[in-house]
Amino acid sequence: MTVWLVVAVVGTATIAFKAAGPLLLGRRRLPDQVAGLVALLAPVLLAALVVTQTVGGDNRLVLDARLVGVGAGAAAIAARAPLPAVVVAAAAATAVTRLLT
C-alpha cells in the first residue's frame, strides 16, 4: 500500500512539474527580462548536473571511478570526438577504473 501511495504521489507531482511550462505558458512569449534568465537555465543546470552526477551522493561528496570517467570524457571532448564516442570513452574509463580499484 505504501508503495502505491508513493508511486501515485511522485508520478502525479512529476507529471505536473513537466507540464508546468507547456500548460501554463503555452506559446506566450516570455518578457525579455525573464527570457534572459531562462536562456541561462541550460548552461547552469547542465553544469550542476555535471557536478552532482560526478561527485554527488546523499548528504555527502563521493569521489569514485566516475571522476576518471568524466576526465576521459573531457579528453574526448577536447579532441573533438563525436558525442557517442564521448559517452563510450567515459563509460569505459569508469568501468576499467572500478575494475582496478
Partner: peptide
C-alpha cells in the same frame, strides 16, 4: 550497470552538452 561504468557516462554527456552551451 556500475560494473559497465555507465554511471560515469551521464556526467560526461552533460559535460559535452554544457561545452556547446558556453
Amino acid at each position: 550497470p556500475r560494473d559497465l561504468g555507465l554511471d560515469g557516462a551521464f556526467p560526461a554527456l552533460f559535460l559535452a552538452l554544457l561545452v556547446s552551451q558556453l
